[in-house]
């Protein structure tokens, strides 16, 4: 019943309720981890400006990570928004909601442009970089980006590198390790090979 979409066709790629709950759960867990990360980040913030930007990729990890895990359309943006909602609930205010939404959208667009068929290191990394650019776009309006050219280049250059490392390399290998635990088997879309193996 839950496998059918609105037109009554069997829908192998759409989000079931289980997938949705897991996606939101992944987002919320990231929200908690980001809270601890934020404490670390706040300590480093004033004394080590370069290290601080290199740790920034963590904020972009949630969307690509959820997508690598669940591999269904809409997952990156929902997980990113869920993570942001938790941050908003514990007192980071409305701006994290907007950033979460836009950064999730950035990552989602990259996966969508590969038609949700490629989930390698590079696609995941680019999704993170797209999140980073989406965040930069908001920073322009917020006013964070009106720096001297050299400062702008250093700040966002380091951030792009960091987002690739966190969402490409780190997320990819952690999801690979999660696959080994077997939890992803029941949530990924059913593939053609799975059907053939039944015959």
């Amino acid at each position: 019943m839950w496998l059918k979409n609105k037109k009554g066709r069997i829908d192998l790629k759409g989000l079931r309720f289980t997938d949705l709950l897991i996606t939101i759960m992944v987002g919320i867990v990231f929200g908690v981890i980001m809270k601890f990360w934020d404490d670390l980040y706040s300590v480093i913030k004033p004394i080590m400006p370069v290290a601080r930007q290199l740790l920034y990729g963590m904020w972009f990890m949630v969307g690509p990570f959820a997508m690598l895990l669940i591999r269904k359309p809409g997952v990156a943006i929902i997980a990113s928004l869920a993570g942001a909602s938790l941050s908003a609930f514990i007192g980071h205010g409305f701006e994290v909601l907007l950033y979460g939404l836009v950064q999730g959208l950035g990552a989602e667009l990259i996966f969508a442009s590969f038609r949700y068929k490629r989930f390698g290191i590079f696609v995941a990394g680019f999704a993170g970089v797209a999140s980073c650019f989406a965040g930069f776009f908001l920073d322009l309006f917020y006013g964070y980006a009106a720096l001297e050219a050299w400062a702008l280049f250093v700040k966002y250059g380091l951030r792009v590198i960091s987002s690739f490392i966190f969402t490409g390399i780190f997320a990819y290998y952690i999801v690979r390790a999660l696959e080994a635990t077997g939890v992803t088997n029941s949530i990924r879309p059913v593939s053609k090979e799975d059907y053939e193996s039944l015959n």
């Binding site: 897991i22 992944v26 867990v29 895990l69 939890v183």
Partner: peptide, 8 residues
């Protein structure tokens, strides 16, 4: 994550 996914 392994725990949270199973729990969810």
């Amino acid at each position: 994550f392994a725990q949270s996914i199973r729990r969810a």
